[in-house]
Design a protein around this nucleic acid. Sequence first.
DNA 1: ATACAGCGTTGACCTACATCAAAAAACAAT
DNA 2: ATTGTTTTTTGATGTAGGTCAACGCTGTAT
Lengths: 250, 250
Amino acid sequence: MKTAPLQTAKKSAVACHNCSLSELCLPRGLTSEELDLLENAINKTVKIKKKDYLFHRDDQQHSIYAVKAGAIKTSLSTPDGEEQILGFYLPGDLLGFDAFANNRHTCDAQALDDTLVCELNIDSFQELCGKLSSMRGQMMRQIGAEIEREHMLLLTLGQMRTEERLATFLSSLSERNRERGFSSTEFNLPMARHDLANYLGMAVETLSRMFSRLQEENIIAVQHRLIKIQEMDRLKQLAHHTCRPAGDAL
Amino acid sequence: MKTAPLQTAKKSAVACHNCSLSELCLPRGLTSEELDLLENAINKTVKIKKKDYLFHRDDQQHSIYAVKAGAIKTSLSTPDGEEQILGFYLPGDLLGFDAFANNRHTCDAQALDDTLVCELNIDSFQELCGKLSSMRGQMMRQIGAEIEREHMLLLTLGQMRTEERLATFLSSLSERNRERGFSSTEFNLPMARHDLANYLGMAVETLSRMFSRLQEENIIAVQHRLIKIQEMDRLKQLAHHTCRPAGDAL
DNA sequence: ATACAGCGTTGACCTACATCAAAAAACAAT
DNA sequence: ATTGTTTTTTGATGTAGGTCAACGCTGTAT
């Protein structure tokens, strides 16, 4: 289907110390010495091209990855070729925890764009977590956030109508951008309509209609992937199902 | 809404050593000495009555729980009173990992029946995981399984039609029973129609119709909560979306 | 027994969304 | 620019499943 990720990968030096994402990523709250240990656990920085896979379900090799730049989607596919996108991972997000169960990834991870990730060897990372309680705490928080995010998505898919789903998504992407110091009212969607529709459990056509509807009501302005939120309060109102700001990832 | 869980709880001695669930639960693969340490981390055994809550979202106190008997559902509820059930936990299952993120549970957990759980203090458990790599591995496997289960549910809610959803659910409950040494073709549903419908993202009426349809086609026989699977292969065929046997919990 | 409350099933109807079809816009390659 | 390819939008139509309503069954209390 696609070339293996490692064939298109380049290795480069790792440096959490001066990484701009250190406040979002694992390093948050660690001392300089702890950071050294973390850097040792990092295999390498991997560059993957748009549409290439970071990992496949059941791959022999498994790691935890931190996104430095670009965007990754994870998905599950069925025997008959249907897929469900499980999450979008943006700079500062970690992915790969699904491999904890059986030392195999249980979903696929594909780059939505040319992407840069840090790869952490799962075993040395586990070992590190044994040694440093701060690191263990970091990891637990990340895992907890991942579970919480998935809970929100279940709520979205199980209870909301399509307009609500989109409003909730936009609202949480906005929040996310705010947290990262970007504009919360004007941003680019990192994914195509097709992927977003799949993630939100609706047809592309329906998604497009919902974008149009929100635009007609002057709640947002849409130009391709650029979204401008014009009336945040009305957007949040539509997304009233949402429980809390929803911290990490999407 | 309901009495606090602890008011209806009774404490009793903990003994992983002679617990019949030790092969399903955390103790699996641990040495006798490691088991001693685990027992020390366990606060107590808690008894909760049907419809009482094991924990609430944002509770001050948070723990990991292992179900010994009965059944628990976890759910998320929205400001406007809608709920989405996230999972059903049966004997041998662990729940409460959602509190890792912020030291607060992010969902509610309610007993579907009179239920017995072991309560593990989260901090001493974490500490234990620092000391014992085998325990860390155990926990990671459990967390991984939880994530994998939620992925399957996302696939179910996002991609399947109602009949498929029910077929998938029954098929995985059957598999689960088989793994625990119970009958895979005849078992009781631990939850009411209302809860199952919610979990599967459909109306109770629709769920009821799907039960009837499967029964008309002689794939299953239904008497209240008792399910007899008559044609397993046809059931699995209907659930063809399912990726793999789906190990733990529901 | 009888009455009552909660749960489950069935039927009639309706709507939110999927599907089908086609045009328009954006993008890529020559 | 020109052509082909992919993505997005819009419109027309169909349907799966939601909603509303009524009824039957099970269990509990009197």
